[in-house]
């Protein structure tokens, strides 16, 4: 301990003398998070037990790393892991690009009425549940007489079994998710765009920069922090792909690329409510998330020179 302090010895930071109030301001969040998130962390030990609700955490049998061993040795777990990652990264990439592009484009619309109407409408798909959408997609993507395939036939293509072919399934899942969320997701970027100082644009206009140049040199750099924050936080969620969507659309034909961690855990749970196993999987996902978020943080710092926290 002593050596560490001597090595790291720096000049003492002199803080404002009323900075103790900052702790006061921080305390509600710390207390609430401690009570409602940290105290229940005790439940994580279930991952190392064979938990039975009636025995409780103190009474259930300890099994050590058994649940994790089971998880990693399970024949399908590797496939399911890669499926999750594949769908997730595709969603992340196309989702971010489309959301950002939309935000930039809608921001260019000068007609006030059109702008507000479009902005309101694009939020709407976010509220459609996948149970409802599942029914609609089954209908319009029907391989024999669905709307989409009728259209394909008209322009001379063979009908496609979108939900029954592994590759098309992934495409359908990614595309429908992008469609559903791009409008809602754009709100964050719109807020960031609204925060840009108009004086910057005025100056650029005086210099004779066109809209494209203004976007490139003012708009984008101004919202880089927001992009970095959103991307970093999304990357941490990479193993949570959206159970509801997959669950409502998948079927045995597309287990190959469509079966994800969450649907797998769901089917495991159907056999008998295995709390310990699902806790173990959850813990594994959280640890992966932690590494991902730290990685993303570093990358954001290196690439954009911005520390998000």
């Amino acid at each position: 301990m002593n050596t560490a302090t001597t090595i790291k010895k720096k000049e003492k930071i002199v803080r404002r003398k009323d900075n103790w109030q900052l702790y006061l301001m921080l305390s509600p969040a710390v207390v609430l998070a401690f009570i409602f998130v940290y105290i229940p962390f005790g439940g994580i030990v279930m991952a190392f037990q064979d938990y039975k609700p009636y025995l409780g955490i103190s009474g259930s049998k300890w099994v050590g790393w058994e649940q994790f061993k089971f998880m990693f040795e399970y024949p399908d777990s590797v496939q399911v892991f890669w499926n999750t990652l594949r769908i997730s990264l595709l969603k992340l990439f196309f989702g971010t690009v489309s959301t950002l592009t939309f935000a930039l484009l809608i921001n260019e619309v000068r007609k006030k009425f059109l702008r507000s109407a479009v902005q309101t409408f694009v939020f709407l798909p976010h509220f459609l549940s996948w149970v409802v959408l599942g029914g609609i997609f089954l209908e319009i993507l029907d391989p024999t007489n669905g709307l989409v395939n009728e259209a394909l036939k008209v322009i001379g293509f063979d009908p496609i079994f979108f939900l029954g072919d592994n590759n098309w399934f992934v495409i359908t899942v990614v595309a429908s998710d992008v469609w559903k969320e791009f409008g809602y997701g754009s709100i964050v970027f719109l807020a960031a765009l609204a925060g840009i100082n108009p004086a910057l644009y005025e100056a650029a206009q005086l210099d004779g920069a066109g809209r494209w140049k203004q976007t490139l040199h003012i708009t984008l750099p101004s919202i880089v922090p927001t992009i970095a924050v959103v991307l970093t936080l999304s990357i941490s969620q990479v193993l949570n792909v959206g159970f509801d969507q997959i669950f409502n659309l998948y079927n045995p034909l597309v287990y190959g690329k469509g079966d994800i961690i969450d649907t797998f855990v769901y089917r495991m749970g159907l056999v008998d409510g295995n709390y310990s196993f699902s806790t173990a999987v959850g813990l594994f996902k959280s640890v992966v998330s932690l590494f991902l978020i730290l990685g993303a943080y570093r990358i954001a710092y290196k690439v954009a020179g911005y520390k998000i926290f």
């Binding site: 940290y38 105290i39 229940p40 962390f41 005790g42 409780g56 955490i57 103190s58």
Partner: peptide, 18 residues
């Protein structure tokens, strides 16, 4: 110590409940 504390509290809850 935070972890130990939270485990303690939770298992306490589970204990008393049993």
């Amino acid at each position: 110590s935070i972890l130990a504390m939270s485990v303690g509290i939770a298992s306490l809850a589970a204990c008393s409940s049993n």
